[in-house]
């Protein structure tokens, strides 16, 4: 069936809440408003206010409440209206959710999903447009997932809800309305498995979330020029499926990494480091990263466009690793 990314998330949560009484949804306007991006449409009607909790605008408070509830045996899904506001909950995420299992010597844990959109939409300004996945990937104890397609969004969210660890699940505003094929019936997508979204032999492009769609567009353009790019979607950013990325690089010998986040200490730097460590001898060219610019997101449209990776920059990076500038 062809459904939207938004509907995929809705189905995943709905199915898991039907399956497991311990699962509840908490966040700003998730109930009667049905979610700022309408992801939880119909939830309060089906599950009631006891399991679909509208919160005040207090991210630290309700995220911390969810961590405590998880420690006591529940399976919370925290919806952050956007990950920008998740910054207010970082103490709870980093100091409590991620560490409680380790600090307690395995006695306690915080099985929960913290989800919502990251990255830029259109002209929302600096405080509402940022890709913070590298921050979360840096923290031991967290798993980080950033699906690009409805099929992956549904299957990975279901896996995340069932996973016994705290999980950061990053969506994107510009993906909610995108559509894709999702199989009928029950399925999950395993955490920690990349997927080759397009086969090719000339160059590997690693891209996730919104940037995957960009990479696939560029790959189609390049195909018409006789260049077959292989596009690898990590889907899970941590733990990263390095094996699939390295296998692709061994085949193509060339790697471009596309991410929307800031360049310095970005996720692509980690991927590049890992590939240099594991597959240096297979590389025929230096790895090239296409990233967001190291600036707060500007409002003006031409400036915003200049700050985010686009087709031209991805194309140029591919040409560079192919030595065809």
């Amino acid at each position: 069936m062809l459904i939207s990314y938004r509907e995929a998330l809705n189905q995943a949560m709905r199915e898991e809440m039907r399956r497991d009484e311990r699962v509840f949804l908490i966040g700003e306007d998730v109930g009667h408003y049905q979610g700022a991006f309408k992801v939880s449409k119909g939830f309060v009607e089906e599950f009631g206010r006891g399991r679909v909790l509208d919160t005040p605008i207090t991210e630290a408070g309700f995220t911390g409440l969810a961590v405590g509830a998880a420690m006591a045996g529940l399976r919370p899904i925290v919806e952050l209206m956007t990950f920008n506001f998740g910054i207010l909950a970082l103490d709870q995420i980093v100091n409590n959710a991620a560490k409680i299992r380790y600090m307690s010597g395995g006695q306690l844990s915080a099985p929960m999903v913290i989800r919502g959109p990251g990255s830029a939409a259109h002209q929302l300004g600096a405080q509402h447009s940022q890709s913070l996945e590298a921050w979360f990937c840096h923290v031991p104890g967290l798993k980080v997932i950033a699906p690009a397609t409805p099929r992956d969004a549904k299957g990975l969210l279901k896996s995340a809800i069932r996973d016994p660890n705290p999980i950061i699940f990053i969506e994107a505003q510009l993906l909610y309305a995108t559509k894709g094929e999702v199989q009928e019936g029950e399925y999950t997508v395993p955490i920690g498995q990349a997927e080759i979204k397009r086969q090719g032999d000339a160059v590997t492009i690693v891209a996730y979330s919104k940037m995957l769609l960009l990479a696939l567009e560029v790959a189609e353009e390049l195909a018409s020029e006789g260049i077959q790019a292989e596009v690898v979607d990590p889907r899970t950013l941590k733990p990263l499926d390095l094996q699939t990325i390295v296998a692709s690089v061994r085949k193509t010998g060339r790697l471009v990494i596309v991410e929307e986040g800031w360049r310095f200490a970005g996720l692509g730097a980690q991927i590049a480091d890992s590939v240099y460590t594991d597959a240096f001898d297979y590389l025929d060219a230096q790895i090239v990263r296409v990233t967001g610019e190291d600036v707060p997101m500007p409002y003006a449209r031409p400036l915003e466009d200049a700050a985010i990776p686009d087709r031209a920059r991805v194309r140029a990076a591919v040409k560079q690793v192919l030595h065809r500038a």
């Binding site: 630290a60 408070g61 309700f62 995220t63 911390g64 409440l65 969810a66 961590v67 405590g68 509830a69 998880a70 420690m71 006591a72 045996g73 529940l74 103490d91 709870q92 100091n95 409590n96």
Partner: peptide, 13 residues
């Protein structure tokens, strides 16, 4: 930082 956790334990109860 642990006061929200306490409310969460109570929420679970």
């Amino acid at each position: 930082g642990h006061l929200p956790l306490a409310t969460g334990l109570a929420f679970a109860v």
